[in-house]
Design a protein around this nucleic acid. Sequence first.
DNA 1: GGTGAAATCCTCGGGGG
DNA 2: CCCCCGAGGATTTCACC
Lengths: 152, 152
Amino acid sequence: MTFDAIDRKLIQLLQEDSKQTNKELSNKLNLSVTAVYERIKKLENHNVINKYVALINNDKIEKSFVTFCHVKLIQHTQEYVIKFEEEVANLPEVLECYHISGDYDYLLKVIVKDMGAFREFMVNRLTKINHIGSTLSMFVINEVKHTTAISI
Amino acid sequence: MTFDAIDRKLIQLLQEDSKQTNKELSNKLNLSVTAVYERIKKLENHNVINKYVALINNDKIEKSFVTFCHVKLIQHTQEYVIKFEEEVANLPEVLECYHISGDYDYLLKVIVKDMGAFREFMVNRLTKINHIGSTLSMFVINEVKHTTAISI
DNA sequence: GGTGAAATCCTCGGGGG
DNA sequence: CCCCCGAGGATTTCACC
């Protein structure tokens, strides 16, 4: 599907705050409520909008220890790769996992309570997965910027 | 604030889908609609819930080229650090920026259309910021897992 | 934490340019 | 095709138990 200027603005607005009423959106877009409603439905049906979620403050729930973790596999047979990706997907501490270029195979974003919980995670959860060659962890000292809104 | 089992379940549900009605939530939590309403308001007022957003499909809007970019500064005077963090916060291509431990100072998540746009971003936008020593880019080959929901 | 009612909103049929 | 109006039904919100 293609987007006009109004669609782009609408996507931007919903990425910033999805709890706005269609009425509020209609004011900002100079449209009727129905027109806004139909544009949103179109974006949802075309899977441009994936889902609506609540974002929570990680330090309010004792999950303020964030780590980026590089992982290298011993071998890269399809069997090993699939197994690793499956297991990682099931670890709740891993919010994100990317197959990346460079010295390591994967980059993981891990979030836990503190250093103790991270050690526990590494020893008992992550490295329990077979075929992991080596890991390299980088601890987040400060979150400078973090948005889910992709500019369009 | 402290959470009971119902709060935790509620947070989990809202992180998965914030468009559920309070009625649907009340069924899943075995509560009345009003009780759900008040619990949500409490979470919002205590900033446990930060905001509500629409998540969009990046490849549906021509932003499928994702890169993690390490950045090292030449110096680490407060002036340089503040300047860099300000400038990065204003770059729409940069969704996330973390001050991290390790060989580099910062880790950035950058999202653009394609390799050409990335080159353009590096040459004309990122490295135009003063005091940047060196960079190292890792391209995302495949997104194995990506969630905003922190398990509680 | 629950009940009930008012205010507001979502949703969709019908019609216009 | 994209937009607007209007109305029914659902939802949010709040005073009160």
